[in-house]
Design a protein around this nucleic acid. Sequence first.
DNA 1: CCCGACAGACTAACCAGTCGGTATGTGTAA
DNA 2: TTACACATACCGACTGGTTAGTCTGTCGGG
Lengths: 200, 200
Amino acid sequence: MAAVPRTTDKDGTPVPQRLLAAATRLFAEQGYDRTSVQEIVEAAGVTKGALYHYFGSKDDLLHEVYARMLRVQQERLDALADADEPVEKRLRAAAADVVVTTIEHLDDAMIFFRSMHHLSPEKNKQVRAERRRYHERFRALIEEGQQAGVFATATPADLVVDYHFGSVHHLSTWYRPDGPLTPQEVADHLADLLLRALRP
Amino acid sequence: MAAVPRTTDKDGTPVPQRLLAAATRLFAEQGYDRTSVQEIVEAAGVTKGALYHYFGSKDDLLHEVYARMLRVQQERLDALADADEPVEKRLRAAAADVVVTTIEHLDDAMIFFRSMHHLSPEKNKQVRAERRRYHERFRALIEEGQQAGVFATATPADLVVDYHFGSVHHLSTWYRPDGPLTPQEVADHLADLLLRALRP
DNA sequence: CCCGACAGACTAACCAGTCGGTATGTGTAA
DNA sequence: TTACACATACCGACTGGTTAGTCTGTCGGG
């Protein structure tokens, strides 16, 4: 009754997860189009038969990366935004948290912003919709602060969100784990810049 | 003595420029790998013979897009940074200008940030080097203001540059010409956010 | 004995770059 | 002024290599 396959030879990780991990790494390293299905299955120590047993297409694999990332980020944002704290604290926490988790999953982030257009149209639409939900939750925080008078209203909240997420997006371009700043330090600085920009 | 070909049938535009324009549009629309050389030459109204007469490879075409963009941006930054104005004004002008020119060449920008990894290693290195020059010129402006005491020193100048260019980078993801904001309005808002974040 | 979990050879399509060929304009020498 | 040589500007069929996805089959456990 092994509806979910328990393990396989090499290590203790189930095959679908091994495939997803291999694909994530390779997509981030070489790009989606430059990564062949053959490479993925070899890196995961299986064959094409296994991949197409668990996933419908190469595109599906990419979609899984997006779904995983979106799920994690949305959950974290919801938790932080719902906390019982003043709005400045909640925004700062959310702004810093997304930086830390992005850095912790830099491969995912790289794929996220670089390979959207490789998704099939419907999957692309779906990802955009979920992304919009996230964006709007974040925007609501800023608007709440603006209405409460603790944030400046000079800039539309939408633009502020795009400003901040631009810098998050950009992390995968420049951040190096062996650089001088820890993820938390970068996060604090970027959250600080956001809050400073919002001072009335 | 037509060292530079003057015109050709269809319109008055020389073939190399037609090819570059077609490639730029298609790369932005479909991505580099998804665009075949055949599509490019058809869009430009010529054949492969013409393309490989003027360009060494498909990769060369991509490199040209980068070179063009970098040249324009660097020239504009140099001019603005060298102006005889107080540093806040120069930084604001530079920050806003890069937004406007990025929006005006949104296809180039999209390609720029999405397709770096498709360049051959040497070309990639070259582009990175020029990009770094640009980055450092911008950083120097911020450091100048910090040393003069008109900008906050809470955040390292490098990080501030990445913060701003993240948002510039991000423009190609969300900005739509038919949206509510003109390029100049967006630029003013984003420059404003930067300057606000830098208030001591 | 049956089904899920794979294996791996195979196919049909595609694509970057090549290469021999053609056309057109220009400089030069008779 | 004509004739020839030659380079530039392009044409388009062809090649060699690659790839996503398929399909038939094997194997081990329940």
